[in-house]
Amino acid sequence: MKKKKKQLLLTSFLCLCLLGQAQENQQKNAFAVSFGSPGLGLEYARKLTPKLNAKVVWHSLKIEDYEQEDVKVKDDLVDILANLEVSIIDLGIEYLPFKNSSFKLTAGIGILNKVNINGVVTYNEDIVFGDVIIINKDAGEIITDINWSGVAPYLGFGFGRAIPKKKLGIGIEFGSYFSSSPKVDLTATNLLESTTSQKENLQEALDEFKMIPRIQIRLAYKF
């Protein structure tokens, strides 16, 4: 009788092990939460082969009314009020070149729904022209609006699999989007209205800003 019980327990244990192994082999999906330069990210990943994973990520970031005071521009002190809004969808591939390493290479495209920087510049102190004093609030303000849009390929590398070996996994990625030049809009009011003539110069200065950094820390859950 005891022998039959032992055999039954052993059989049950083996069945559980095989079931667990089968479930492990079927777990080819993962959900991840990330945070980094593109903002908060929600990610779904699917294993294609032992070395290749596909993933879709939605990034979102919004910073409102970030104020920086006493910024020196030439001989003047100005205050800057900035806003940042980011909404990007990534469609990418992750390649794991080494079997026993979590090192990976990533590539894909980012759909730049909205990458916008808006800034309002005002004088910090009154403006003096000889005997004439202009109150800083009457001088006006300069408003800049910078937008990246369209589809941008990205490349990167990192550590931590999109589909972790265990139930939970942590990862980090470094890379960059390669976008077109941003579109710049420049407006000004009151005495600063003539500043709008510098719009083309500002556009030319930002023509080189075609790389948007992509740095993320991820926490993934396999299912």
Rank of each mutant, 00 (worst) to 15 (best):
Val57Lys: 12
Trp58Asn: 04
Gln68Glu: 14
Gly92Trp: 01
Glu69Gln: 10
Lys137Gln: 14
Lys165Pro: 02
Val78Tyr: 03
Gly160Lys: 04
Asp90Glu: 11
Leu84Trp: 05
Asn116Asp: 10
Asp70Thr: 06
Asp76Asn: 10
Ile88Cys: 01
Ile172Arg: 01
Glu173Met: 07
Gly108Ser: 09
Ile80Gly: 05
Val56Asp: 00
Val115Asn: 01
Asn100Ala: 08
Leu155Phe: 09
Ile88Trp: 00
Ile127Ser: 10
Leu186Asp: 05
Asn147Gln: 11
Gly130Cys: 08
Asp185Gly: 08
Glu64Val: 11
Leu105Cys: 11
Ile172Gln: 01
Pro97Val: 05
Ile146Lys: 09
Gly130Thr: 12
Asp90Ser: 02
Ser101Asn: 06
Phe174Lys: 01
Leu155Val: 15
Glu85Cys: 05
Glu64Lys: 10
Ser87Asn: 14
Lys74Leu: 14
Trp58Ser: 12
Ile93Met: 13
Asp185Asn: 15
Gly169Arg: 08
Lys72Tyr: 10
Gly175Ile: 05
Tyr95Ser: 04
Leu191Gly: 05
Val71Cys: 04
Glu173Ile: 10
Phe157His: 02
Leu105His: 02
Ser102Asn: 09
Gln68His: 09
Val184Ile: 14
Ile109Trp: 03
Ile142Phe: 13
Val56Leu: 10
Phe129Asn: 12
Tyr66Gln: 15
Lys165Gly: 10
Ile80Leu: 09
Ala162Trp: 12
Leu155Trp: 07
Glu173Gly: 10
Asp145Ile: 06
Ala139Arg: 11
Pro182Lys: 00
Lys72Asp: 09
Lys137Tyr: 09
Trp148Met: 07
Val73Tyr: 12
Ser179Cys: 15
Gly108Trp: 01
Leu112Cys: 05
Ile143Glu: 11
Arg161Cys: 05
Gly110Asp: 07
Asp126Ser: 11
Ile63Thr: 08
Phe157Asn: 02
Glu69Ala: 12
Lys183Pro: 00
Lys166Ile: 10
Leu91Asn: 06
Asn113Met: 08
Leu81Ala: 07
Leu168Ala: 10
Asn147Glu: 15
Val121Leu: 15
Asp138Ser: 10
Ser179Met: 00
Ile111Lys: 00
Ser181Asp: 13
Phe157Gln: 04
Ser180Gly: 11
Trp58Glu: 03
Glu94Ala: 15
Val73Asn: 06
Val57Pro: 04
Lys167Glu: 13
Gly169His: 11
Phe178Tyr: 15
Ser181Tyr: 05
Lys114Gln: 12
Lys137Asp: 13
Lys183Ile: 14
Val132Ser: 11
Gly140Asp: 06
Val184Tyr: 00
Leu112Glu: 02
Thr187Tyr: 04
Trp148Gly: 06
Pro182Leu: 02
Ile117Arg: 01
Gly108Tyr: 02
Asn116Cys: 03
Leu155Asn: 09
Tyr123Gln: 13
Asp65Val: 06
Thr144Ser: 14
Ile163His: 04
Arg161Phe: 10
Tyr95Val: 07
Ser180Val: 02
Ser149Leu: 07
Lys104Thr: 07
